[in-house]
Design a protein around this nucleic acid. Structure first.
Lengths: 345, 345
DNA sequence: CTGTTAGCGCCTTCAG
DNA sequence: CTGAAGGCGCTAACAG
């Protein structure tokens, strides 16, 4: 295996005995026409040499790359991988390739990636995941994005509409409110909740919405009945243990994400508390991978992959300049994890 | 929001009243020294202008990008997202950014991505996932990779060592063999299996290993007791239904992946077959997201994230030219989904 | 239809 | 330590 010098278009042109321009025209699908004869010669030469165009040179020359940047918090979290899958699908359909950034839930990394991806001159930039409540972080990201957009880039995000770009907004608050109502309708009167740190808007919204729903039935969700932890399975697990220790007397627990709910269920199982026998539990998101959990989890369904698709289309299909907002409603799905208290008095 | 022309290093230099060279030296961490005075001027100018270097121009000039390509089959499958997470972690540590390609399980897309990523002049290329048994596909990909490597790129894969590049090889066959032994030790004598199409080497290996293990105990796994489907949850679901219809009389079923096992458990539940009461079931991979399944799944544990880390290190930390192979053993983890037949006669 | 020739934005010798 | 200039590989006018 010889370490031959990288072959360039010039090499191909030389071997095919045509000009650089002609070679370029047949290699990249230019609209200009070329004689079948020459075209064949170029194609053959390219194949013989194992030529591959240099995307950097192409991007530089026509000042437009064919990559889109995607920034998510955690690729192992099904919430993000589902949305990412949607984004990838449409990028793919457009012949674009995706550069993926993972923040590991650190807001600073989000900004760092925005900047790296901007340097890569990506065609579009998509951010997925809760916005931090930090005003400083948000405005720094916004500044970065403004430069990006000003330079001709397109950007969108899936979360709260806090950035000056197109946004796909899951209706967290309304969804949680509906969930609370249905749970109340099931006969529950005392609730508890598992949430994430206040710094995460998504958790805040869902908890607020849940409270709204309870309030309609004049039910209060006391602060002592709310514990919090990281937005992960283990976070839910720990928060649930803490909640159990507090003995709130609740008959139903709301976890702000399905992933946390799963951790909570594990904690309850460990403590010998049966679900939904002793305690009901509900989540939010309707993660597909979790559909085989027993008991099946009551939750608020969000069309995750579809949200990714929408976000991608927003920035890839032409598009107006004004930051647009697409609201995505969540549907309550009642399953086995929440007990119907009415049928037993 | 004005659509200003993209600002270049030349703009920064002009504003800082220094030469292009000086500006370049302070922006990219060159080893050459620059007076603090001038340095500050450049930094300020860059900030004022909202300047971001053009990665394409940089890559072109120094012929070396700072991105690594990663190709997986399905981002929503925890097997891949875990490994990908490992890769991303080390890329991140090296200040590199990841371009992600998803094949949606189509071998042709793997080749297509190899070519696109080569065009992007990625520093390294990593393929994760079973190799197809198709000799044609494999050799086309190999050709592509040889050109890539010849041009100075580094490549690795996680799967079977079929490509002329560094490889992290999960010991599928040995792991499945050990699993079979332990299951036999539990008292099981009649088995069945859920596998994927023959075209997928990983499934082939695991099934073969399982057969090896049974053979040691002189137990046969008849073809009628083996059904197959896509390597997904739904594939396992469908394959399980088919298996149930065949009434094989098995007391234990082996699914070649945890994901398929989960689908199978759902099918069994639907048909009123209790696990492990009526039938035991075991998987392979030990997917973390599935750890809260009930009953907990017996499986063969593979250090997924670690495998991704190893693959990335193979191509990112210096490295010899010879294709190296790292074998990763799998550990059997007996849990609730497989019944111990001995304790009850 | 084909060839010539400027750049695209930046890095990097090589003088000063 | 700083500046001037060539070139990285390719595209896109512009002539022929």
């Amino acid at each position: 295996m010889v370490k031959r010098a990288p072959v360039t278009l010039a090499d191909v042109a030389r071997r095919a005995e045509v000009s650089l321009a002609t070679a370029s025209r047949v290699i990249n699908g230019s609209d200009r026409q070329v004689t079948p004869e020459l075209e064949q010669r170029v194609i053959t030469a390219a194949a013989d040499l194992g030529y591959t165009p240099n995307a950097h040179a192409q991007a530089l020359a026509r000042s437009a790359s064919n990559v889109v940047g995607l920034v998510i918090h955690d690729i192992t979290d099904p919430y993000f991988s589902s949305i990412a899958n949607g984004v990838i699908r449409v990028a793919d359909r457009h012949g674009l390739i995706v550069m993926l950034g993972t923040t590991f839930r650190d807001p600073r990394k989000e900004i760092e990636y925005a900047s790296m991806l901007r340097a890569q001159r990506v065609r579009a930039l998509i951010f997925v995941g809760t916005r931090p409540s930090s005003r400083a972080m948000t405005s720094r990201l916004a500044t970065e994005l403004e430069s990006f957009v000003a330079a001709g880039g397109r950007a969108a995000c899936v979360s709260q509409a806090r950035l000056p770009i197109d946004t796909v907004v899951p209706e967290n608050r309304a969804g949680a409110r509906k969930l609370a109502r249905e749970l109340v309708a099931l006969g529950h009167k005392r609730f508890a909740a598992l949430t994430a740190p206040r710094s995460l808007l998504t958790a805040q919204e869902r908890l607020a919405g849940f409270r709204d729903g309870l309030a309609e039935a004049h039910i209060d969700l006391p602060d002592e009945a709310v514990t919090s932890g990281p937005l992960t399975r283990d976070g839910g697990y720990a928060a649930a243990h803490e909640l159990i220790d507090r003995q709130t007397g609740a008959t139903c627990v709301f976890a702000v994400t399905d992933v946390m709910a799963v951790g909570a269920m594990a904690a309850l199982r460990e403590r010998g508390i049966s679900v939904p026998g002793d305690l009901s539990i509900a989540g939010f998101d309707d993660i597909d991978t979790l559909k085989d959990l027993t008991p099946a989890l009551t939750t608020v369904r969000l069309p995750l992959q579809e949200m990714g698709v929408r976000a991608a289309e927003l920035v890839l299909d032409g598009g107006r300049p004004t930051p647009r907002v697409i609201r995505v409603p969540g549907d309550v799905v009642l399953r086995e994890s929440t007990r119907d208290l009415r049928s037993r008095g």
